[in-house]
C-alpha cells in the first residue's frame, strides 16, 4: 500500500479483498455496502488474512483495540468499523 497517494480506508479494504479473493480462487459478488460479508464467498481464513494485512497497511486492528465486542455483518459495517477506529 506504500506510495505517494495514501488510499482511503475504503479503497484499501476493497483492494485487499480483491487481492485475497484472487489468491484464494474465490469469486466475488459486486462489493456493495449492504453485502453480507459471509455471503461474499470469503471464508474465515480470508477475513483473518484481511484483518492482518489491514493492520499492516493502516497500522491498527479495531477488533482487538476496542473493549466492546463487535462483529460486523455487512461490508458497510466493516468499513465503518475501520473508519471509526482511525
Amino acid at each position: 500500500m506504500a506510495g505517494p497517494f495514501a488510499m482511503s480506508t475504503r479503497l484499501t479494504i476493497l483492494s485487499l479483498i480483491k487481492d485475497i479473493a484472487a489468491e484464494q480462487k474465490k469469486t466475488l459478488p459486486p462489493l456493495t455496502d449492504d453485502l453480507v460479508l459471509l455471503e461474499s464467498g470469503l471464508d474465515s481464513l480470508c477475513f483473518a488474512i484481511l484483518v492482518a494485512r489491514l493492520e499492516d497497511s493502516l497500522g491498527y486492528d479495531p477488533f482487538t483495540a476496542s473493549d466492546d465486542v463487535y462483529f460486523p455483518v455487512t461490508l458497510g459495517d466493516f468499513i465503518a468499523f475501520y473508519d471509526g477506529a482511525r
Partner: peptide, 12 residues
C-alpha cells in the same frame, strides 16, 4: 504465529 481476532491465529 500471529494473533488473529478471526481465527485465533494465522501463519506468517
Amino acid at each position: 504465529s500471529r494473533r488473529s481476532p478471526i481465527t485465533g491465529a494465522i501463519v506468517v
